[in-house]
Each structure stands twice: as structure tokens, then as C-alpha cells.
Design a protein around this nucleic acid. Structure first.
Lengths: 342, 342
DNA sequence: GTTTAGCACTCATTTGAATAGAGTGCTAAC
DNA sequence: GTTAGCACTCTATTCAAATGAGTGCTAAAC
């Protein structure tokens, strides 16, 4: 689609612009050395590239900046995968070695590393429990009217919620029911719990216990996952130092969105595994028009999946970020996967 | 200490400056109506107030702005406690009525309300478990080497951490131990758990079980509270709209600090109950010299205590914020205290 | 003695014009 | 096909002048 020379020039412009955040002129490219043509020639090519939609010109007498399309071409065809620095690799190894017991700590830590290595904002989603299964269920009465329902998953995650006990329900009924549930539901995938509850357990309970309806209501409540996927942010203030967000208005739009965890969850979740790059207006959300979002997925014992992402200005160090995310997502899967001997 | 008239003038200046963020001149005060003197008279008093350290002058030909000391006097002697707007009161009632089951949800929600009502940044600390007691303890093996330790407190909070099982420890030993612990430790305050473990339970375990040391290590791990007090932030972007943080550098210092949860916990925690106001340099942390931090405490069933706070520029609507925090902290104590009938 | 009008003075901010400089597009020559 | 040269465009910088808000002081009025 683009000639060899056009590619080279586009590459040079994107590279320069990512470094400097200033429109790139024909002269400075000519001087770089890797494109050995005179400014005039380069100017001609630049005019063509602009016509094709890969470049933009802020005003007549300024250099060119890449358009979204230009970045896209750069990412798809040009961006050289930079090998990471040795010190960065060491951080990854540490992460894998640390054997942090709690999953949340691993994710949190990974987010911090990511933000400090890239100088952008990292957004991480805790593991999606969809694929995990039930390990243990328990109801612990606190007083006459309330109890804590505790659910432990096959990956060792613990979820709890407070439920109210229907008046008149006997303790023994409750205990019996819990025993029954553990016998019947252990190993059942989390997303099938409710269905099983109604299809199999229902009748059984009805035979043994009084207060059938109230009890079912209680159990239904218990199995209603209250928590959304947890969101971890790090390096949000890195946005401040980006010249494109000198404008407080734009900055606020983005930072405001970062406070909306449900929206973030939605934006980061995708069924696709692996690395994904969303450039500028490719992002569905209006607030991200000046941003690029790069995401990768990690897995937890091969069952639960989570997402790690980097948000930065469209003028982002794609090569570096993509490389980092790729390695880190693998490192995380390794750190989280090896937790249970097998 | 200050004459009637000086107080009036100081009050007027602080009021005006809080509204406008611009140095206040003698003329504009004279025109306000509540201080019926000519600009010249007011100028004389202002010069005195400056000499006393209550006012500052950015430069010779500008009006005056309050110094930290000026704000302090305003807060201690002048700030009129504004009654809240009816619509705000309604929000509080809603919070109390909602009966959100999880404590975290209540705290989170309160933070959101606080930030949106005040247009500042809210910082909330989840309940400090210091005063709660153990309700239930459980060890749930995940495989041969790891187990989940689950601790439920008297207020219904659930904590869990992953621990490793010492090789060779029999399942029955473990079960026996857990039963013993529940019998002996139920109702013991959380902060005394470890002491009791060593003083009372130790020998008992030594009699019954093998692997004494490993087992004690496991239990010690289980009782080591991993989580810090949880921090909830809301409205951090409200900092952006404050003119004093037009300077990105200052802004970044503050926002960076807001990402450091351990520091925040330290800054907000104090043994004192009730409302506290820290103005400008009264804050220990360097990053907060241009800020004021107002905090209040809430309680959870009278046992656990947490903190809610508002961070804003020193030029802050003290009256409104103090009033709001006072009411909200009560509303939270009510919402969280009434959870268990009795 | 207290208050106030009047006035000279200070200093940050605004305004506008001139200038500099970076970069382009086009034409003609190589 | 490539490049040197040049006129042209447009932003950013600089600098001086004007503006205006506000003060401090003095002397008069109350």
C-alpha cells in the first residue's frame, strides 16, 4: 500500500513525534540519516502521505503529525519490537519469584511496575471468576437476623456477603442445607451455581426443610456475586506530565473516566485473548479520543482470566508498551499459575 | 485577641477569598455592607492584621489573602456553621436507609456523596478492626501445600489469606486444632489473638499434635492481618478545577500522594475522635502545604472505628465542609451501627 | 481621637505591533 | 526522479506602552 520510501518517512515522523511531541518538519527527517533524501523530496512524499490520510498538518506552516491512521499503520507494520532493558526484565523475574500469596497483591504489584516502567497509566482487571468452580460454601450466623455467606473458589479466592436470615428458619435446617450444598455443588463452575441450585437442589431442600421459599431466597442472595471485577489503577498522575493534557479540560475528562470503575471494566474486557491496541478514536469512549489503550490478558491457573492495560496519549511509545505488556502478562500468568503445585 | 472590627474584617476577607480565589481589596469589603467603614479605615485595620500575621499580601499593589493563621482564627472563632441544604440532607437519609449489606459499600457510597456535595476530594478509611473480636476461624486446604485461612470478626467482616501447609501435617491434626481455636478464641479481641495463641493455646496444641512448630507458624501467619486499613478515594479530579492547582507541579505532588495508600492511612489516622482540621502547613506532609484536611470519625457497632476526610485547597469552604462531615459521620455510624438489630 | 477623602505611587496584567523563525509549496534546474 | 531556491504563511516571541486595581500616607472632617 505504501512505497518503501513512504513507509520509511512515516516511520521517521511517528518516531520523532513520539519523542518530541512537536510537529515534524522535512528538514529534521532529512538530517536523521536513515532517510537519505533532501527535504524537498521528503516534502513531496509528506504531501502524498497527508492526502492518503496518514499525516495531518496543524497549520500551513507547521510540520506534520501522524493521524490515527498513521499510528495504526505504524503499529501494524513498522513499530520495531524493542527488547526490554535488563533491569526491567529483572523486575519481572522478581514478580514471578515473590510468590505473593494473594492474587490481588500480584495484580496490584504488576500494575505499579507497569506504570513506573512505561510512565503511563496502568489499568488492571482482577481475574474474572467466570471459569472457576466452587470449592466451599458456608453460612455463618451473626445474630438472629443476619448471617455471612462465604464462598471459596477453586483458585482460593474468597467472596463474602451479608444476607438476612428469614425469621423462623431453624439453625439445624440451615446447617443441613449447607452440608447438602457442599456435597452437591463442590466443583461446579461459578456461573452455573444458580442454575444448579434451582434445578437440582431445590426439590431436595423442599423435602427436608420448612420455609422453602425463604431459604431459596437466602441462597440465591448468597450466590449473587456482588463484586464487580476489581480494578487496579496506577500511575494516573503520569497523565499530568503529557503535553497533550496541558489542557485541564481534556485532562479532567480522562481522569474522571478513570474513577468510573464499572466503565473501565467494560472498556477493558473483551473476549479476545492476547494483545490489543486501540488508537484514539478507535476507542468507543469519547473521553479517550486523545488516548491509546493497549491491553493484554493473563490467566490464573488457566481458569480465570484478567486484563492488564496501559493508557497513554495517542502519541505513545507503542513498541515499548506492547513489548512490556506481552512479557508482563506472561510473567503474571506464570506467577499466578504456579501457585498450587499441581 | 482581635477587636470586634478586626474580626469582622478578617471574616469578610476570608469569606470573599474563599469565594473568589483573588486577593481581597479594601474597597470590595467596604462595599459588602456588613462592614460599614470606608476603604481607608479598612486599609488601616488590614495593615494591622497583616502585622499580626493573619493576612498576607502577594505584592505591594494587591489585596490581602488570609495566612494559615488567618484561616485558623476563622475556623476557630468565625466560621458560621451553615445549615445544609435540604437536598443534601435527603442524600444522608438515603444512605442510612439503604441498608447496604457490606460495610465497604456504605463507606464507598459515603465517599462519593461527600465528594460530589463538597466538590473537593474525599478520603475515607475503612473501619479499623482493632476493637472487634473473633467470631469464627477456619482453615480450608486447597491442595497438599496451601490452604486458605478465613477469619470472621464480630462485625461480620471477613478476612482471608493464603498460607502454606507444613509438609507432613495431618488433616485431622489441622481440624482438631481449628476446633480448639474456635472454642478458645471466639470473642477474643482481634489485637489480642496472637498473644492468646502463644499464652494459652500453645501448650494445648503441643500436647495433642505433632509438628508443633510448623503448626504455630501456620496459625501465626493466619492471624497476621495482611490488609492495611482500606482507603477509599473519590473526587480526586476536583483538585484539577481549583485555581491554586493550575500549576501542574503542585497538582502532581498532591495527586501522587493520593496514590500512596499507606501514607494516607497514616495521615488520616489519629486517636482523637471527632472533627479535626489541619490547615496548610499544619499538615505534617510536605505535599499538603497548600491544602487543608478535615477529618471526622465514624464507628461500626461501637467497636471498630474509621475515618472520613475531605482534602481541598487551604482556601476551602470550611463551614460547609465541617458541617457536612459532622452530619455524614453520624449518619454513617447510624447506618453501620444499626445493622444487627439488638 | 477616630474616621475618611484625596492623591501619589507600585506593580501585575493586558494589549498591540514588530520581529523572528520554522516550515511549506511551487518552479526551475540538475 | 531529485533537489536547490525562493516566496509565502503562520505561530511564537519580544518589548514597550497602557491599564487598572490596590495600597500607604497625609491632611481634613467629624
Amino acid at each position: 500500500m505504501l512505497s518503501e520510501r513512504q513507509s520509511m518517512i512515516l516511520n521517521a515522523i511517528v518516531d520523532d513525534y513520539i519523542r518530541s511531541a512537536e510537529p515534524v518538519g522535512s528538514r529534521s527527517i532529512s538530517k536523521r540519516g536513515d532517510v537519505a533524501f533532501s527535504p524537498a523530496t521528503i516534502r513531496n512524499e509528506m504531501a502524498d502521505l497527508e492526502e492518503l490520510g496518514f499525516l495531518e498538518q496543524p497549520h500551513t506552516s507547521a510540520g506534520r503529525i501522524p493521524s490515527n491512521r498513521g499510528y495504526r499503520y505504524y503499529v501494524d507494520h513498522l513499530a520495531p519490537l524493542k527488547p526490554l532493558k535488563a533491569e526491567d526484565l529483572k523486575l519481572f523475574k522478581q514478580l514471578a519469584a515473590e510468590k505473593l500469596s494473594a492474587v490481588e497483591e500480584v495484580v496490584q504489584h504488576a500494575g505499579t511496575i507497569l506504570a513506573s516502567m512505561t510512565n503511563y497509566t496502568s489499568i488492571l482487571l482482577g481475574p474474572e471468576m467466570f471459569n472457576t468452580s466452587l470449592r466451599h460454601f458456608q453460612l455463618l450466623p451473626l445474630n438472629e437476623t443476619t448471617a455471612v455467606a462465604i464462598i471459596v473458589t477453586s483458585t482460593g479466592e474468597v467472596e463474602n456477603r451479608t444476607v438476612s436470615i428469614p425469621p423462623g428458619l431453624s439453625v439445624s435446617d440451615m446447617e443441613q442445607t449447607v452440608t447438602l450444598l457442599n456435597a452437591k455443588l463442590a466443583g461446579v463452575p461459578m456461573h452455573k451455581l444458580k442454575a444448579r441450585l434451582y434445578s437440582e437442589i431445590g426439590q431436595e431442600i423442599q423435602r427436608h426443610a420448612e420455609h422453602y421459599e425463604e431459604l431459596m431466597k437466602l441462597l440465591d442472595d448468597s450466590f449473587t456475586s456482588g463484586k464487580d471485577q476489581k480494578v487496579f489503577l496506577s500511575g494516573t498522575t503520569n497523565m499530568l506530565i503529557q503535553p497533550e493534557f496541558r489542557d485541564i479540560g481534556k485532562l479532567k475528562t480522562v481522569l474522571d473516566l478513570l474513577e468510573e470503575t464499572p466503565t473501565l471494566t467494560r472498556l477493558l474486557n473483551s473476549d479476545q485473548k492476547g494483545i490489543q491496541v486501540k488508537i484514539g478514536s478507535e476507542n468507543v469512549h469519547q473521553a479517550f479520543v486523545n488516548c491509546s489503550l493497549i491491553t493484554a490478558t493473563y490467566s490464573l491457573d488457566g481458569e480465570a482470566f484478567g486484563t492488564i492495560g496501559i493508557l497513554g496519549p495517542t502519541r505513545m511509545e507503542y513498541a515499548k508498551v506492547i513489548g512490556t505488556l506481552d512479557l508482563l502478562s506472561r510473567a503474571m500468568s506464570r506467577a499466578l499459575g504456579g501457585r498450587y503445585g499441581a
